[in-house]
Amino acid sequence: MNPALRRVGWHLLVLALLVPLLYPIVWLAAASFKPSSEILQSLALLPKQVILDNYAALADGLGGVPIWRFFVNSILVSGGCAAANILSCSLAGYAFARLRFRMRAPLFGFMLATIMLPTHAVLIPQYTIFQQLGMVDTFWPMILPKLLATDAFFVFLMVQFMRNIPRELDEAARLDGCGSIRIFSAVILPLIRPAVITTAIFTFIWTWNDFLTQLIYLSSPEKYTLPLALRLFIDTTDSSQYGPMLALSALALVPILLFFAAFQRLLVEGFATSGLKG
C-alpha cells in the first residue's frame, strides 16, 4: 500500500478509538444543557433544545450553601495540598538524593514501599488521631499528611529529578562555601522546576478528585468540597435533579481540563519518565 494512504489509515484508526473514548466527557458537556427529562431518554450528543436552566438552578446553591463556596473549598484543599507536597517532598527528596546519613538505604527502601501501601490500612487510626487533635471537619486532615511528605510518589519523583542534576554543580557551590541548605535553595530548587510544577499539578488534580478522604473528614455543608456537593445530588433519587447534577459535574471538571490543556506535555512526560501512576 502506498505510504501516504497508510498514514491516513493510521490517523483514521486512532481517531476511531479516540472518539468513543472521549465521548462521555463531550456528552457530559452537551447533556448539561438538556432538560432533566431528556437526559435519560437518549444518549445522543445534541440536545433537542438547549437550555440554561440546569446552570441557573445551581445559582440557588445546594443545601443552603452557594455553589462558589464548594469551589473555594476545593481550591483551598487542593491548593494547600499542592503547596505542602512541593515543600515537604522536595526537602525529603534532597536528603535522599544528595545527603549522606545512617540508614539511608533502608529508609529509602521503606519510602518506596509506602508507595504501595493501601490507604485503607491507616485510615482508621489516622481518623482517630485527627479526631483527638480536634481537626475533624477542617481541611487539616487532607493537608497535614502532605506537609509530612506521606505522598511517597512525589518524594520519589523529586529524587529522580535531582539525580539527573550534575553533582559538579553542588560541589562547585560547596567549594564556594555554601552549606546544604543554601545549595538546596540556590542550586537544586531552581533546577527542579519541572518536577515542582509536575508535583503541584498532579497533587492539585488528585486532591480535587479525591472523594474518600473528604467524605470521611468533612461533615458540615459549608465545608463541603465539590465531590461532597455532588454527593448531595447522588443521594436524591429525584430524576428532575439530573440536569443540575450534570451541570455541576461538568463545572467540577473545568479546572482539571484547563490544567491539562496548559501543561499536558509536562504532565504526560513527567508521568512517563518517573513511572509515576495516576
Binding site: L18, I25, L230, S249
Partner: peptide, 20 residues
Amino acid sequence: YRSAFYAPSLLGASVSVAVV
C-alpha cells in the same frame, strides 16, 4: 494523540465521571 488517550486517566477518578 498520547495526551488525548491519557486524559481519561486524569478525569476518571472524579465523582463527576462516576456520575456520568
